[in-house]
């Protein structure tokens, strides 16, 4: 992938694969391009070069006769339905109730009946511990509750790929745990492929099977969480983890 903002080259020559069912955590200093990658996969940004494939199909562009050709809107729309995203700032629709937020896409995008969508939404709200908030408006909820609704809303589409961009960074510390607990549970009980950006290293360690360390828009190290957190090879990774963890997790691991 190639991605620039004006003169600022954010990604250059980035290339990586994610297998079905992988839980990949992207770590790295602020500005290293982690969010940009998730946004490219969600088609919220356009790349200047390169190709993203989902299940073998080109997402936004394909190579045709040596040229980079944009895919049709309908193709993007179809493929995008298999991808869900949870944002750092929740991004719930404030003009809708919690229930309306969750059933919007299942009803109007997937064509599910309203009844079935509501039943499903009730199950998801139960799962995120907000069964009694179906008829509340998002702005009546705390940050942690809003984020749990946002998780339910993303899951209501049965995504095959779930993108999580620092989903606990905007939350009060005492709330972080319950949101991570829900995500942990989802990771254990589904086979959704996940791309996770987080600074919660214990969570990354518990949930992911691969960790990619980014710096300056490139992957400088890749490893399993066990290796990455206890025995990082690259000097940049060591200093990054040191800074994030205070003291390295090496001790905790032993």
């Amino acid at each position: 992938m190639e991605k620039r903002y004006g003169d600022n080259v954010v990604l250059r020559g980035l290339n990586f694969d994610v297998a079905k069912g992988d839980r990949v955590t992207l770590i790295g200093p602020s500005g290293s391009g982690k969010t940009t990658i998730l946004r490219l996969v969600m088609t919220l940004e356009e790349a200047e070069g390169g190709y993203i494939f989902v299940d073998g199909e080109p997402l936004t562009h394909e190579e045709r006769g040596g040229a980079r050709v944009e895919m049709k809107g309908s193709h993007k729309h179809r493929l995008r339905q298999r991808i869900g995203m949870v944002f750092q700032q929740f991004n719930l629709f404030p003009n809708m109730t919690v229930m309306q937020n969750i059933i919007e896409a299942p009803v109007h995008v997937l064509g599910m009946s309203k009844k079935a969508a509501i039943a499903k939404a009730e199950g998801l709200l139960e799962q995120v511990g907000l069964a009694d908030k179906a008829h509340s408006h998002p702005l009546e909820l705390s940050g942690g509750q809003q984020q749990r609704v946002a998780i339910a809303r993303a899951l209501a589409m049965d995504p095959e790929i779930l993108l999580l961009d620092e989903v606990t960074s905007a939350l009060d510390p005492e709330i972080v745990g319950e949101v991570l607990g829900i995500l942990r549970h989802i990771a254990e009980t589904t086979d959704i492929t996940m791309l996770i950006v987080t600074h919660e290293m214990q969570f990354a360690r518990d949930v992911s099977n691969r960790v990619l360390m980014f710096d300056g828009g490139r992957i400088i190290e890749e490893a399993t969480p066990e290796v990455m957190f206890s025995n990082p090879q690259h000097e940049r990774t060591q200093s990054f983890l040191q800074a994030v963890l205070g003291n390295p997790m090496v001790e905790a691991a032993e």
Binding site: M42, L44, Q81, I83, N91, L92, F93, A105, R153, M157
Partner: peptide, 11 residues
């Protein structure tokens, strides 16, 4: 961010 949420939901 509201527009982005609509994209993420394929609306």
């Amino acid at each position: 961010s509201q527009w982005e949420a609509t994209t993420a939901l394929s609306m």
